[in-house]
């Protein structure tokens, strides 16, 4: 197993030598007796797009849910090892605090269907008491919807239920909902796997835009998407971290045979 330490990336090393948005140390995850994530240690630099790819069932979604302690919703899930955000163990933090800093976008667009578009974006702000006045709330909602490139499409129907939007719009609404809270990290679990190519393109452009301010960890089973959007890639296979490094390096010159097979489409 090769775990690159990103030395090849000069630009990043100049920006910040030691600051990582997320680090895992010997992360192991089990569902009951089923050992799903096996001793994964990796470091995700700040303000980059970090892709986690691998075949279906290899544990991508599971690992992602360890980063914001969402795994704890599942009673059978057990975690050992550590996860740190900006150097601090998330297990020494309040899970609610963790989830405010580490936002998440899911595989199926999941805005609350009966809640208005406005309220969906305002929800996280209200829950975490991030705004002080109605005016500030209005402004932040508008700002977030603009960030998510959705404002022009919904500005005249903010009171409509979220279910009135198309799938791609709903996914951008979910991004707006997360962005509104100004998280430092956004986790995305195959955010475009249920969308058409045009919506996919929009979201990929968004990701490019967002990484100026936040770190994005995106799960994808598509090497092509990883190549398009990411700066770094980790390749996960059967719960093991096979290879990690800068996207360009890995696509041009994979060090592991498994990685190469996966990238060239010889593996499912």
């Amino acid at each position: 197993m090769i775990v690159s330490n990103y030395k090849s990336d000069v630009e990043l090393n100049l920006k910040s030598k030691t600051k990582y948005a997320i680090e895992t140390e010997n992360l192991n995850i089990y569902y009951g007796d089923h050992h799903v994530i096996k001793d994964v240690s990796l470091s995700i630099p700040e303000k980059v797009v970090f892709a986690i790819m691998g075949p279906s069932g290899c544990g991508k979604s599971t690992m992602l849910r360890a980063f914001n302690r969402l795994l704890e919703l599942n009673e059978s899930a057990k975690v050992s090892g550590d996860v740190k955000i900006f150097g601090k163990s998330i297990y020494k933090m309040n899970p609610i605090e963790v989830r405010r800093i580490v936002g998440m976008v899911f595989q199926h667009p999941n805005p609350f269907p009966h809640m208005s578009i406005y309220d969906n974006v305002a929800l996280g702000l209200k829950l975490n008491k991030l705004v002080k006045s109605r005016k500030e709330l209005d402004e932040t909602v508008e700002w977030a919807l603009k960030k998510a490139a959705l404002w022009d499409e919904v500005k005249n129907k903010l009171e409509k239920p979220a279910s009135a939007l198309s799938g791609g719009q709903q996914q951008r609404l979910c991004i707006a909902r997360v962005v509104a809270m100004k998280p430092k990290v956004i986790l995305m679990d195959e955010p475009t796997s249920n969308l058409d190519p045009i919506s996919t393109k929009k979201i990929e452009e968004l990701i490019d835009e967002l990484k100026k301010e936040v770190t994005i960890v995106i799960v994808t089973h598509s090497p092509a998407q990883a190549a398009r959007v990411s700066d770094y890639v980790a390749f996960l296979y059967l719960g093991k971290l096979i290879e990690v490094g800068s996207t360009i390096d890995m696509f041009e010159n994979p060090k592991e045979k498994l990685t190469e097979e996966y990238l060239t489409g010889r593996m499912g």
């Binding site: 914001n68 969402l70 919703l73 609610i96 605090e97 989830r99 405010r100 936002g103 998440m104 899911f106 199926h108 999941n110 805005p111 609350f112 269907p113 009966h114 809640m115 929800l123 996280g124 829950l127 975490n128 979910c174 909902r177 997360v178 809270m181």
Partner: peptide
Amino acid sequence: LPFMYREAIYSLGATRYEATKILVKEIK
């Protein structure tokens, strides 16, 4: 109620009580 809504509300930093309130509204 699909599990994805539970994940959604908790991922936004809701407490258990807040999450329940929102989820119950969804089954009006």
